[in-house]
Nucleic acid binder design. Structure first.
Lengths: 219, 219
DNA sequence: CTGAATATTATGTCTAGACATAATCCAGAG
DNA sequence: CTCTGGATTATGTCTAGACATAATATTCAG
C-alpha cells in the first residue's frame, strides 16, 4: 500500500465512521506531512483525489474540510443487452423488424430476445451525418446497439426512464397483454455536440430490472 | 489554463475527434515532456487523470493507449424529492400515513405531494441499529428521506428500477386508476456494511421521469 | 469607527530528479 | 529449436523545494 493510499484510506475511515463530521476541518497539509513523514506533494495528491471524489472540500488559507453529504447520485450501468443476457446464461438473439432511410436518418426497429422470449422492443434513429458507415450496415444479425458500441465513440448521453403501458402493437411484439406496465428507456447520444443516435427501449415490467450501484468517494 | 489542463484537453480532443482511435498508442511521457516543455510529473498527472476517467489505458514499458469505448454507464441523479419539486416551482408537501416500530426497525409510510397532487408513495424501513436518533422523530412534517439526508452519512447504495401496475390501495392513495403503469424505485442504503434504510418509492408513470446524464471522461 | 493597504498563510501548480516495478526484448545455455 | 536470465525501458511513486494565488488577519490612514 502506497503512502498516498494510506493517507486517503485513513481520512476516509475517519469520515465514514463519523469521527470527523461534515464541516470539521481536517489536519493541514503540513501537519499530515509531519505525521506521515512524507513530502507535501504526496499529501496533496491524496487530498486532491479525496476532494475530486467529493469527500472533502479544500479552501485556500482556511484548510480542508469534510464535505456535506453529497446529493444522491448513482452510477447506472446500461450494459450492452447482448452481453448482459449472455452473462445470465441465456440465449440471445436480435430480430430486425424494419430498416429504412429517411433523409439523413436511418430508422431501425427490432426485438431483442432472451431465452427464446422477446425481451426488449427497440426503436432507433441513427443520424447518418455523424455515422455515415451505418448506412452500409443491414443490422439483420447484429443489433444497432452492439454495432455502434464498437464503431462510434460518444462523448455525452442522456437517459430518460419512464413507466408506460404497452399498446396493442407493442404488446403483440413482446408477446404480452396490452396495457401491461413496461419500463421505457430513452437514450440520446452525442459525439462532440453532434447527435449520434436516439433509441427507445421498451421492456416488459416483469422481465427487466435496472440496477444502479453507488459508492460515494469511490476513490 | 494550467499546463496539465492543456495536456489533458489536447489528448481528449484528439481521442474524441477520432484522430486517435481505440488501441492507438499516444505519445510516451518523455515525448510529451519534450513537446510541452514541462516536467514529467506534470505529464504524469495529466495521464493519471485521463486513465482514471477511463479515456486511456497505461501499460508499463509499453506506453499509454486509447482505451476501448467504455461500457455504457451513466450518473443517475436521485435528488431529494422536496428539493426537486421546489426547483420546479411547485408546492411540496409530505403526508405521513403510518409510523410504527417493529423490533429494531422503524416503518414509515407516506405520500409526497407536488402542486397539491400525490406524486410518490413511499414505504420506508429505517434500521434503528444504524440510526437510533430516528426513533425520536415523528416524521409528520418532514419526510424521512430529507431527514436522513442531513443526519446519516451513507457509504453505499443500491437502486433497483422496475415498472409495475398499481394495485387498488396504491392507486387510491396516488389518486389514479388501478392497474396503471408506475415506476418503482427501490433503494437500499448502507453505512460501513450496516443497513441504514430501505425505501420503495412508487411514482405514477406519467408524473415522473427519471433522468440520467453522462459525460465519459468527465475530468 | 471605517476602509484600504499590507502581511500572513494554506492551498495550487510546478520542477528536476530519484528509485521501484513490471513488461518486454534479446542473448546465450541447453 | 526452446527456455531462462539479464538488460532495457516506460510507467508508478516519491522527495524537497520553488513560486503563484487566494483568502484571511492585521495595521494604518483618514
Amino acid at each position: 500500500m502506497t503512502v498516498e493510499e494510506r493517507i486517503r484510506s485513513d481520512i476516509e475511515a475517519r469520515v465514514h465512521s463519523g469521527e470527523w463530521r461534515p464541516g470539521d476541518r481536517i489536519p493541514f497539509e503540513h501537519e499530515l506531512v509531519a505525521s506521515y513523514g512524507c513530502s507535501r506533494a504526496t499529501v496533496s495528491k491524496a487530498l486532491t483525489r479525496l476532494a475530486r471524489a467529493g469527500l472533502i472540500e479544500r479552501r485556500r488559507k482556511a484548510g480542508s474540510f469534510v464535505a456535506d453529504p453529497q446529493v444522491h447520485s448513482a452510477v447506472l450501468e446500461v450494459p450492452d443487452l447482448a452481453a448482459m443476457i449472455a452473462a445470465r446464461g441465456e440465449a440471445y438473439c436480435w430480430k430486425l423488424l424494419d430498416r429504412r432511410v429517411d433523409g439523413a436518418e436511418l430508422l431501425v426497429t427490432g426485438v431483442h430476445h432472451a431465452a427464446g422470449r422477446p425481451f426488449c422492443l427497440e426503436t432507433r434513429t441513427i443520424f447518418l451525418a455523424a455515422v455515415p458507415e451505418a448506412g452500409e450496415e443491414s443490422f439483420d444479425t447484429v443489433s444497432p446497439g452492439s454495432w455502434l458500441l464498437g464503431h462510434v465513440p460518444w462523448t455525452r448521453a442522456r437517459h430518460g426512464i419512464r413507466a408506460v403501458e404497452a399498446d396493442a402493437g407493442q404488446a403483440a411484439l413482446l408477446e404480452m397483454a396490452a396495457g401491461k406496465a413496461c419500463l421505457l428507456i430513452e437514450r440520446r447520444t452525442w459525439r462532440m455536440d453532434a447527435p449520434v443516435t436516439l433509441v427507445e427501449q421498451l421492456f416488459p415490467g416483469d422481465r427487466y430490472d435496472l440496477v444502479a450501484e453507488f459508492r460515494p468517494g469511490a476513490s
